[in-house]
Design a protein around this nucleic acid. Sequence first.
RNA 1: GGGCGCGUAGCUCAGCGGGAGAGCACUCGGCUUACACCCGAGCGGUCGCAGGUUCGAACCCUGCCGCGCCCACCA
Length: 882
Amino acid sequence: MTSTPAARTDLPAQFVPGEVEAGLYERWVERGYFEADPKSDRPPFSIVIPPPNVTGSLHIGHAFEHTLIDVLIRRRRMQGYDTLYLPGMDHASIAVHALVEKALVAEGTSRRELGREAFLERTWEWKAEHGGAILSQMRRLGESVDWTRERFTMDEGSNRAVRTMFKRLFDDGLIYRAERMVNWSPALRSVLSDIEVEHKEVDGELVSIRYGSLDEGDPDSIVVATTRVETMLGDTAVVVHPDDDRYRHLVGREIELPLVGRRIPILADDHVDPEFGTGAVKVTPAHDPNDFEIGRRHGLPMPSIMDESGVIAGTGTEFDGMDRFEARVAVREALRAQGRIVAEKRPYRHSVGHSSRAPYEPIEPRLSLQWFVKVTPLAKAAGDAVREGRVVVHPKELEPRWFAWVDNMYDWTISRQLWWGHRIPVWYGPEGEIVCLGPDEEPPAGWTQDDDVLDTWFSSGLWPFSTLGWPDDTVDLRRYYPTSVLVTGYDILFFWVARMMMFGLYAMDGAPPFHTIALHGMVRDEHGKKMSKSAGNTVDALAWLDRFGADAVRFALARGANPGTDMPLGEDAVLAARNFTTKLWNATRFALANGASTEPALPAEPTDADRWILGRLREVRGQVDALLEDFQFAKATEALYHFTWGEFCDWYVELAKPQLRDEATAEGTRAVLGHVLDALLKLLHPVAPFITDTLWTALTGGESVVVAPWPVEVGLPVDTTAATRIVDLQKLVTEVRRFRTEQGIPDSRRVAARVAGLGVAASEMALRSLARLDPPGESFTPTATVEVVLSGGPVHVELDTSGAIDVSAERARLGRDLAAAQKELDAADKKLGNPKFVDKAPAAIVDGIRARREAAAADIERVSARLAALPSGTGPSGTGPS
RNA sequence: GGGCGCGUAGCUCAGCGGGAGAGCACUCGGCUUACACCCGAGCGGUCGCAGGUUCGAACCCUGCCGCGCCCACCA
């Protein structure tokens, strides 16, 4: 009689994610699992958390990023590290600014009408409302960030860290103010930095205009080509190449600028490409970066012809008051009316810079007075840190991008004409004096502060140390800086990562802000296309959480995360992950119902199956650890998926069934089931936190898997004998099942069988269980034989199918086997027939091929004999062995 | 124009010098006392094209074709 201990659990039969998740996160928080302890003697592991963009709802990209971060953290926590997140919510986000601005427009008001104070009040309200929503959505995902540790707060538009950093850079001469050609966003009415500009090919026009005399032969006539006709209102010269014979005689003369009537010089400049267009270029120094440089070289006047909204202004022409695009047409038509349009090319494809900030619009090069950071020394340090290996970029393929950028960086425009952000800590006196003040300094009475705010990346760049209390020398800063790792998307490598590196190295005496930069890709739709609202292929992360559960969403995200590469994600992937969680649930239920436990020690005499699964567990644990250390989330998760489903559930659980029925092995099997599941649930916890905690506590009675020790030496060393026997068994079972399937024998029908040549009693018992074979009775009459060559030699399984078998099906089955063997034989013969191969290839390889050849030849002989022995008459004739 | 990368089963991808793999999809059987969100079996690929190196190439080299991303001041 077998003893079956009562199930020690009341796990529901059905896995319902919502019910499992309910209240669990809150319990973890209450118990303080996520809290860091600066006084702990455990090793610190700190990680910088990118902020979720506060747009009202959880974006799948954030779910992805935060899942990866949390996988790392949860594992480290289980490994005994004192883990600390450095989250920040209130960095000066232009996204929020733009959203609020949009809302104001919808209300019929504007930033300017509202005034600075009221506007900031609105942005705070927005943050409070939507920021809170995002946080609770992150918690639903299971992300274990302790957001209560938030320390980076933008108060009064300026905080200690930002002002300290600004002043240091200012005092070191690394921040300066200058009138430069900048990227201007007319919609935002603000300057943007170079990397906030996206170059995009657009269909424009290339228009050739005759300046000066309308008479082609007149020396005072010259034709210029432009894609921006309207800027001719601000032209102050025409330039040609100094060696261009066509125009040599014109250099130095003056010509009349159409529509405006101003006389402008014709100059020579190397910049001009004589091959392009007419070889003559109009120069608008205030509205084109190249023209600005030319203007500077020749001391040209630089009249601005547009206001900050991109409207033509101050030209004294009829075009004043027109939008720049409107003016482009109007000016062109006015020129045409004068007969000055010589040629037009339309569409003319060329690259135009667009604002990467909402709204997406062509940027307007504009001459304006702004604050800049002199980045060359800072960027060099950032490059050197990676070059010298003090900071590791992962994956390595992205390093060239880092160097290319960091080593060729232009000065960084840090002022923004926005109101959301840290205000520039510079004050102007009544006599035009300028003073930069640190956090604890007060400006003299009557001085006024600069109206502009800092680029969002200036303040965000301070994150890793300002969150730890910098500039003060705090306990946290000493313990957690440099942080262990930064996990973020490659898309903000330059925006955010580079700034943090530059500031960190500068402010912390050369200590980088993190040891490792682990870059992930972007989430794309199931066909690898970029998700976008306009394409309609975005996914609703919250809906997925509702439908499939947080564990499934996290598992799917982790399972697709290959370092530095984009990740296609569709509903199918999440569905597969949901199915996986259900599978895990059911397997654990089975184990518990059969008395699985971690309490008893592993059996002194494990069965082959026990040894095999315990050996595999040890291997898999090693793989998972190595992969996670290398940020190979996809491969680690895939390894766990395969082990759990394809090995543990499909084979071990099935092999455990007969073992549980046998008094001699039942107790040991319960222990093995318990030990494997215990380790497996721990290994899966980072990628599926809720279900693993529920199952693990049910299995072990422990407090929580969140704080359970990460498996180190689990299972048993690999036992090759046992492993080989199980692989043999799997092969044999599959062959018998194949025979059954092809003979149309339903699984519910047990078939009497006699097994010869297997040699291992336990294997035969397992075979009978898995292939549904009964022992041969007295009336046993074999009607067919399944023959398989295993490591120990051929094994015969004679089956009594109670009557005639389907000969044609059997012939087809054997025919396929024969063809496969023949193919194998031919391939081996071909190789072995090549003397160079036998001569030069390593002996082990040659021996391997020889062995395969022999096996194939034996198979052919055996299968042929089997075919010949089949009764004729049914099925195709004449297929006997020759 | 420069840099990085990708073209492998219907789809999404892994493999990166010695027997073509996974998940999903598909076909055929099955409600076998954990699971039909399941079980079993199966079908499916001149590994983009062309050369080269090698005893041997999906894998290394060269060229070509197609695609993606990043960087770049040519009107």
